[in-house]
Design a protein around this nucleic acid. Structure first.
Lengths: 288, 288
DNA sequence: ACCACTATGTAAATCATTTTCAAATTGGAG
DNA sequence: CTCCAATTTGAAAATGATTTACATAGTGGT
């Protein structure tokens, strides 16, 4: 189902004068519309209620009420953010725009996620002798570190390797029952592929967080496909880090649940030592 | 403003029989409710319209209509996710629940963000001689690394220091015009506070990403306050990493925009060298 | 077993939204 | 420039949905 703002974009050219006023109101004060009656909206726009009804119809809604619901649905992040799509450089708009990108990346990742693959991957990780998290470059090395960070707290032996030479060397030490979790946003990293190849030779299972149908994925036993379009504005960052972080979070949570009491005990220990050393309230989050 | 599902969570204990039926309907078929009239909802639940009105009131809504709008607002990502709040351990529900937590963390961060402070921080960073990103522990050290990672690409001299002894030593080398960007989720990290103190002694400006009204914040020239409640389930991770990552993203983007052409050129160079060495498509994201 | 309290439904009343229709405006053709 | 037709808009009536008021049914306690 198309969202109401893109419909507005389409029909904007053949809108009448009063309707254009309403369009402006919609874009600028969606939060007002959502919480007001048709009379209030009409008054605020300086038009009559029937005009508002007609405007809703033109936007493909059956009634004013269903129009309001549609507006509320796109305006998930606090309706004010609707204005943020523009190419404005005002700090407020940039913040809103980044938030929307973040939300979209996470939602899309969830929607396209192969839950079954993730669940199988968590199974494999849960029973691993050693988990080696491989990644290089901005996002991927962050993810490798984060994966290691999360897994060791659950009581799993895990390491993070973000250097290609070290990846190759580490891979050579693995054996059957060990697992490599490899992240690659591009899916093209040749040196990573070589390291995975080496790991497989020695019996390790390879789980890849990467774009499907690319060399890294081809080398994996289980691929958790993450495929996001990159933005064009070079000054604005790619959103893939949120997608990858979400999947890492998910894998770690799955593993924690599968391991149950074992993980709980391990987390308790980590937390205990940490609060001992820091003299801190036990309620603090794990590890600052 | 609290979202309607967390309100439901709270009031669920003192709900009557009919209201419980409605609660189930709300969680399971929010998309139906959103597109139906009060009569349809009443019929589907097998109760009378006034009961539905009373249910809405109990959830803090003034009318059925405003109730629908509230439901529509939380049901942003395909209403299916509403069911995820439960304590289910089904992979699908866990994935949905994590997504909701992520979205909420990011949205709340945006809503409570002091844009002005962030903008001033970006100004200071843009003109820094050296930017030292300090952080220790799971989230904070990730953020320090990410901050460094983002800033060096923009052509700023920056380093990441995630070890307390090194932080203290590094702080001692700073001078007027240098900047420390310190992350601390708890805001209590005493060793970090000491390092900041040292840095300030030598003239460095301190920007803190942390909880307000705590020791780390007290030491900062500019505090970007991030204050999220931590979840209770020890097996499920804290969501603060998304909040901090979002703020880091934002700061880096602000800096990039303030520096404009300078940053664009630097990014171009980084990208150029990377694609040269990797023989990759120039369209790939920066740094895998 | 009765009382008091709460929960729920019926029916009337109210309120918001929509439809109808007429007036005003706009754009074009003579 | 002026008149006509088409379109836009608003006022008022009509409709339809939601809420209120009140009565009844149910529940738990004494």
């Amino acid at each position: 189902m198309r969202d109401i703002l893109s419909v507005l974009q389409d029909v904007e050219p053949d809108l009448s004068k009063s309707e254009r006023i309403l369009a402006t109101l919609l874009r600028g004060e969606a939060d007002f519309i959502v919480n007001a009656g048709i009379t209030d909206v009409a008054e605020r726009a300086g038009v009559s209620p029937p005009t508002v009804t007609r405007f809703c119809r033109r936007l493909g809604c059956e009634s004013f009420t269903s129009f309001k619901v549609q507006v509320a649905q796109v305006a998930f992040a606090g309706t004010r953010y609707l204005q943020a799509n523009a190419t404005s450089v005002a700090p407020r708009d940039v913040a809103d725009s980044l938030l929307i990108q973040l939300q979209e990346a996470a939602t899309k990742t969830r929607e396209t996620l192969d839950i079954d693959a993730a669940s199988r991957a968590a199974d494999v990780i849960s029973n691993a002798g050693l988990v080696a998290a491989f990644g290089a470059g901005g996002t991927s090395s962050m993810i490798a570190d984060e994966m290691q960070n999360r897994l060791f707290r659950l009581g799993l032996r895990s390491i993070s390797v973000t250097d290609h030479a070290m990846q190759l060397m580490q891979a050579a030490t693995l054996s059957h029952g060990d697992v490599i979790v490899a992240s690659s946003v591009s899916g093209l990293n040749q040196q990573l592929v070589r390291a995975l190849e080496a790991g497989k030779t020695y019996g390790a299972t390879v789980i890849a967080l990467t774009r499907p149908d690319r060399p890294v994925s081809a080398m994996a036993d289980i691929t958790i496909a993450i495929d996001l379009p990159e933005g064009e504005n070079i000054l604005r960052p790619s959103t893939s880090r949120y997608a990858y972080l979400y999947v890492t979070d998910l894998l770690a949570t799955f593993v924690a649940m599968k391991r149950g009491e074992e993980s709980r005990e391990s987390l308790r220990r980590v937390k205990h030592q940490l609060s001992n050393s820091r003299d801190e309230d036990d309620k603090e989050a794990l590890g600052d």
